[in-house]
Design a protein around this nucleic acid. Sequence first.
DNA 1: ATGTCTAGTGAGACTAGA
Length: 260
Amino acid sequence: MKIASWNINGVKARIETVLTWLNEEKPDIACFQEIKSVDETFPREPFEALGYHLETHGQKGFNGVAILSRLPFEEVNRRLPGDESDEQARYIEGVFATKSGPLRIGCLYLPNGNPVDSEKYPYKLRWMERLEAHARKQLEREEAFLLVGDYNVIPEARDAKKPESWVNDALFLPQTREAWHRLLNLGFTEAIRATNDADETYTFWDYQAGAWPKNNGIRIDHLLLSAQASDRMLATGIDRHVRGWDKPSDHVPVWVQLRD
DNA sequence: ATGTCTAGTGAGACTAGA
């Protein structure tokens, strides 16, 4: 089965692009970030018409996450635990029954964190601590567990065309990458890098300054797999061509195929 | 070439967030 993640940058502005991609790539499960819609006005019908079950966790104006699945949801959890005062819609988790046992997928939109001298950077780091605590707890289940989404983390210099321009950015600061490595070191496999060692492997190109035609990209969308999930990994991919379509998101889909 | 896009507000020559 194919599990994809994509920051779509607004579901209403992207509906035709997203439907075209779903018809082309036919993921079994698709995790979307930045839906920029409240749950009540999310355009459910075109996705349900393609046979998807759909669970959303949105808010007004920005952020927001959603999971589409051909399999029915056995369980849905909204919000990342650890801070009841956090109002930002950045995490939704679904559980599905598969032939090989339960499959648990967390869909996350990790805070950007810029500017770093504002309250936004400490919020990002606290959010990463909460994600690590949640991941540690869920890994104890010893299930196939995936944490996928827009991490807003550039793991290494080779994950940016121009790493020098990111050295003081919240996506690449040492504290950000340390938190990323603490998460990975709980025992996750980073699916893209485990299967693709190529340079210039990116998932985001800014709308500004001709970033796409210059291939001035960064790799910030990631698929983290528990041991039980990575044992079933067959293939991964980045749907880079989608960035060249009309009305593109600034991110492209990333996906992993698991043995059923 | 710091060259864009989306949603919200309320009607902008706007703002926030990314």
